[in-house]
Design a protein around this nucleic acid. Structure first.
Lengths: 229, 229
DNA sequence: CGATCAATTGACTTAGCTCAAAGCATGTGG
DNA sequence: CCACATGCTTTGAGCTAAGTCAATTGATCG
């Protein structure tokens, strides 16, 4: 557990509060394809130490395994260092599915906050992360409301480039950690439409793909143009 | 100012911390149609005391007045008691537009949190409200991603009924505080499509409308069925 | 009461979905 | 190390829900 403390929003990893939090946090690892469901606790706070995961809203019946169900929506993709709040949504459960092997620390939200109650810096960091999540979720709302398929895909690859390899301009190569189906769910499109948009962007010289997951963005600024306002 | 303290997440309105917060909070009122923009401060915390407002993401050029611009998306509607976090989004400013005359208290987020730093209850309440906003924003993402126009409109009227008059079942009448255009923007549809869905729901006996804003839901449970999972 | 702007309705267009088939990665077993 | 099987991914053809454009109706306010 100790080696994962860096994933927590704690200034000094050897402080007393760090010990107390580690005592109530549950270390979990998921193999690629496995899912973490809220289960008994309906309100979890998860810190990702290693790996990639998708936050999924299951609107249909709950299935054990992580396999993509057609009626799912992907609410967000998550990366190391991210904090994720998992709460039930009206009319559907939420779960975190591993896209790769994932290491994480899981808290019951209330228990975490009780323990950290007198540590303003920690609570505030959690608040900042939650406002940041809200901001990203709002961007998604705008995207889903007013953007075309091409704009969504362009904006998606730009945002993933930033999050997986820190690139915000010029060219860059990386591996997409998720399938076309995951991308489609997350953008509110179908697999076929996503695939067609990749093809079009490739024909327009904005990116290349290599195999299922390899991707090279040739000009991030041009892709941002395509992504629209 | 004192009479609006009840809008703040403060247990005891006459406590010292309440005084300190009131000292840094700015009381504002907006007339119907006016807008509050972040302006110099890029990170505001707003507590609505009275009235209805819409949180708008301006993706196009910034216009002074609140008049609906075609390229706007409405991120959320807000009601008395709501806390709203206004932060800039990548590629577009966010503002709060009054749907009716509105009374509110505005804080710079950092200043608020600094002042409340040693008041766990307050910070925690702010965190809870922000997680709740995240939850609503996620519901919206699901809605925009996978729901038909009819499902969106049905789900919209149900949620407004709950928020403006607390009704969650049976029948209920109220006035919609926003125009068809606002509803359309908020659901990622066009005015015409929203209007057609109201017509269809009326023909199906699920609701009636009276004038521009009057609405009666005849059977909230049936509307929830229409709204889908 | 009439002017004005919101809401509705209609006709037509289109982006993206659906269904269906073919092409490729990727991993497994010989 | 190569062949094959599996399941992603791409491509194609047609359809449909929702958008666009345009005209009409209706509400609201001076």
């Amino acid at each position: 557990m100790a080696q994962f403390r860096s994933a927590l929003p704690i200034g000094d990893p050897s402080s007393a509060i760090a010990d107390r939090l580690c005592a109530i946090g549950q270390y979990r690892s998921l193999s690629k394809g496995d899912a973490l469901r809220a289960g008994d606790l309906d309100n979890l706070l998860v810190f990702i130490a290693e790996g990639y995961a998708k936050l999924v809203a299951r609107t249909g019946p709950i299935v054990d395994r992580a396999a993509s169900h057609e009626s799912d929506s992907i609410l967000a993709f998550h990366f190391p260092g991210d904090m994720i709040s998992i709460v039930e949504l009206p009319g559907g459960s939420v779960c975190l599915c591993a896209l790769s092997d994932v290491e994480m620390i899981v808290f019951d939200t209330d228990q975490f906050l009780d323990t950290a109650a007198n540590e303003p810096a920690i609570i505030r960091s959690v608040l900042a992360k939650s406002l940041h999540a809200l901001q990203r979720s709002r961007s998604k709302v705008i995207q889903m409301g007013h953007k075309s398929a091409r704009q969504r895909v362009a904006s998606f690859v730009v945002s993933i480039a930033e999050r997986v390899c820190g690139c915000t301009r010029g060219a860059c190569s990386f591996n997409l950690p998720m399938s076309r189906g995951d991308i489609a769910d997350s953008l509110g499109l179908t697999i076929e439409t996503v695939s067609r948009q990749f093809t079009d962007l490739r024909l327009d010289g904005l990116l290349s793909t290599k195999g299922r997951s390899g991707i090279t963005l040739h000009n991030i600024d041009a892709l941002k143009q395509e992504a629209g306002p």
